Simulated scan of single mutants.
Amino acid sequence: MTIKILADSASDLSETHYNEYDIEMVSLTVHLDEKDYKDGKTISPKVVYDAMREGKAPKTSQVSPENFKNIFTEYAESKQPLIYLAFSSELSGTYQTAKMMEQEVKETYPDANIHVIDTKCASIGYGLVVLEAAKMAKEGKSVDEIIADATNRAKHMEHIFTVDDLEYLRRGGRVTKTAAFVGTLLKIKPILHVEDGKLIPLEKIRGSKKLFGRMLELMEERGGNFENQTIGISHGDDLERAQQLADMINEKFGPKNIEIEMVGSAIGAHAGPGTISLFFLNKDF
């Protein structure tokens, strides 16, 4: 029986990806204008970014326990193997909720072939891990092979990103109010990365012109074997700059492929419009 891959909407994959690779998706919730929306299903990222530009502050919440319980029960009853690759546990409680529901469902169905894996990744970095797992499932690889590859791939996935306005990170408690104010005045652009699933400020660049050059330097320092890997770029409603970065990467490194996607509503609600994120496998992969 084919192994099903489950991802959540923080993977920022498109509907095309889900359909092509037969991936199941579960949505985080976005709260905007006193309404709840399903990320990737009932609200578009563009709506969230436009609301943020108007000064609104959308909020998000994790996938509900009931949602996971229903999905896991369905696969337990059908005896179809399921691997849920989860958004980083350091950025959302979704993974912990899924683990609790996995254990609960297995009390009723002890033989259920259900596995919950913390990728400690986000956005298209997480999405690239999911896509490879789905390809392996289609090729008939075993549960153990898929989990081993996904775990290793996630461990070595680099996240290098910048935000257009520090104010959005301040709202999420990532930078202080003073740092956000000073950064905006001085046109300082932060470069951040993800370390063991956590969001960590890396350095500050003064002036946006130097920004992409520094991101490429970090890519060269940390990554390798680009001609054999797919690079991920995600953007907060700024396709033009994402394409500019992709062109620079193609010219310098000639990667096998570049996937460009918009940062989805759930992550975008915290990062804000103008976010540009870069994902690649490091030299140790």
Rank of each mutant, 00 (worst) to 15 (best):
L131P: 00
K46S: 12
I205C: 05
T94N: 04
P58K: 07
R153H: 15
G272K: 10
H235A: 11
I146F: 04
N257L: 05
L32V: 04
I5N: 05
G197Q: 03
I147A: 04
R53G: 14
K204P: 03
K99P: 01
F72T: 03
K69R: 11
T176C: 03
E20I: 10
G272H: 01
G274Q: 06
K209Q: 11
A86G: 10
A57R: 14
E90C: 11
P65A: 12
V63A: 09
N19V: 13
G264H: 06
A180K: 06
V116N: 04
P255S: 02
N70H: 07
N228A: 10
V175M: 09
M101C: 12
K4Y: 11
G173K: 09
A242S: 08
L28P: 03
P190A: 05
S64L: 09
G40I: 01
L216Q: 08
K189L: 06
Q229V: 00
T29V: 14
F279K: 02
F181A: 15
V143A: 06
R174G: 06
Y168S: 01
H31V: 14
I200K: 14
G264T: 02
E195N: 12
T230C: 05
K69S: 12
D12R: 06
I124F: 02
L13P: 05
K4W: 07
S11W: 00
F212P: 10
R241H: 13
K38L: 15
K187R: 15
G93A: 14
P201V: 04
I260F: 01
A137G: 07
K204E: 08
Y75S: 02
T119H: 00
M52N: 04
E74C: 05
F161A: 03
F161H: 03
R170K: 14
L32E: 06
K120L: 12
E102V: 02
Q229G: 02
H156W: 04
R53P: 00
D33S: 14
V163N: 03
N257Y: 10
F87W: 09
G40L: 09
I191R: 10
F279H: 15
A271H: 08
L239T: 00
Q62A: 14
N70F: 03
G254A: 02
A98K: 07
V48L: 08
A154R: 01
T230N: 01
S11N: 13
L6P: 00
N152T: 14
L166G: 02
T108F: 03
N250H: 12
L278D: 06
M215I: 06
V182G: 05
A242P: 08
K256P: 10
E54T: 07
G213D: 13
D247Q: 14
T2N: 13
S27W: 05
E90R: 15
S27Y: 03
K256Q: 13
L239A: 13
H31A: 10
E251I: 01
T97I: 15
I258F: 00
I43L: 01
E227T: 15
E24S: 12
Q243W: 08
Y49S: 00
I231Q: 09
T108K: 15
D36R: 07
Q244S: 13
L211T: 09
A154T: 10
